[in-house]
Amino acid sequence: MVTDGYIRRSCKKISILLAFSFFVTISGYSQNIFLSDSPGLLTYGQFSQVQQFDGASVGLNYSLNGKTAFGISYGSNSLNNRNYQSVSVLANVLIKKQSEGDILNFEVMPSFERKYHNPTNQNLSLFALGTGISRDFSQRSDINLIPRASFSYLMSPSVGLTNYFSAGLDMGLGYDISSNLKLIVNPGLNVRMDTGSYNGTFTGGFLVH
């Protein structure tokens, strides 16, 4: 027999998992702001930690023209001695790009994530839509220093929990190793608006362009 206490505990665990899943999905995904109007391939790893669990993911993203990018990532997260896997599909569209006329970058970041735990068949579907505003403050052609503010909305119809907003700050650092290879690191912090809970992320990767 399923008790109310069991249901409440299960919903709480799922809520924490949803918040973490969302942060891992959208953080650090904006290689378009490191590119000119040319294609680029980004490979990266990401680590995130919040409250009693942490997780890592790896991803591969391709930018078609320096303005529109698509990607996929795989993550493994630990929560209460259980391991969850996730597969994410992401997109990033740069609506406005920094130039003499436009001093800021403005981007939109839709994503979908499927998270699952095989022994219990606990599956979650996650949809997120994010926006980001950033600017490159570097004075050298071989270095990027790009702070970004983001604002996002998470939807999870698979478990019927309340949708919510999140805000984030991160710092993109890019260094040209060669004429067509750039090292990117991206530490960040995200805050869930309705509860005030937060987490930190660190992303690192290589951009071939």
Score class of each variant (00 low, 15 high):
residue 81 N to K: 13
residue 90 L to G: 05
residue 67 K to E: 05
residue 43 T to S: 08
residue 116 Y to E: 11
residue 108 V to C: 08
residue 103 I to K: 13
residue 204 G to N: 07
residue 183 L to T: 04
residue 163 N to T: 12
residue 102 D to N: 15
residue 176 D to G: 05
residue 199 N to Q: 15
residue 129 L to K: 11
residue 176 D to H: 13
residue 94 L to V: 03
residue 129 L to W: 15
residue 164 Y to H: 15
residue 115 K to F: 12
residue 152 S to N: 12
residue 8 R to C: 06
residue 161 L to S: 10
residue 208 V to E: 06
residue 179 S to I: 05
residue 61 N to D: 14
residue 119 P to I: 02
residue 150 S to F: 00
residue 158 S to I: 09
residue 56 A to N: 05
residue 110 P to I: 00
residue 91 A to N: 05
residue 113 E to S: 12
residue 169 L to I: 12
residue 172 G to W: 00
residue 48 S to F: 07
residue 96 K to V: 14
residue 169 L to D: 04
residue 25 T to F: 02
residue 190 N to W: 03
residue 144 N to D: 12
residue 89 V to L: 06
residue 114 R to S: 08
residue 1 M to S: 15
residue 143 I to N: 05
residue 201 T to Q: 04
residue 163 N to K: 15
residue 151 F to I: 09
residue 160 G to E: 07
residue 1 M to I: 12
residue 197 S to Y: 15
residue 147 P to M: 04
residue 193 M to P: 14
residue 164 Y to G: 13
residue 118 N to C: 08
residue 198 Y to P: 02
residue 68 T to M: 13
residue 177 I to D: 01
residue 2 V to P: 13
residue 76 S to T: 12
residue 111 S to Q: 11
residue 201 T to V: 13
residue 58 V to L: 08
residue 64 L to I: 11
residue 79 L to N: 09
residue 208 V to C: 05
residue 54 D to K: 04
residue 81 N to Q: 14
residue 34 F to V: 03
residue 153 Y to T: 07
residue 60 L to D: 08
residue 84 Y to V: 06
residue 160 G to R: 10
residue 52 Q to P: 12
residue 142 D to G: 07
residue 86 S to H: 04
residue 197 S to G: 12
residue 28 G to Y: 02
residue 35 L to S: 01
residue 133 I to R: 13
residue 113 E to M: 12
residue 29 Y to D: 06
residue 173 L to E: 01
residue 79 L to I: 14
residue 137 F to E: 00
residue 187 P to N: 01
residue 205 G to D: 02
residue 36 S to P: 13
residue 34 F to R: 01
residue 36 S to N: 11
residue 138 S to P: 07
residue 102 D to H: 11
residue 207 L to H: 00
residue 95 I to W: 01
residue 203 T to Q: 07
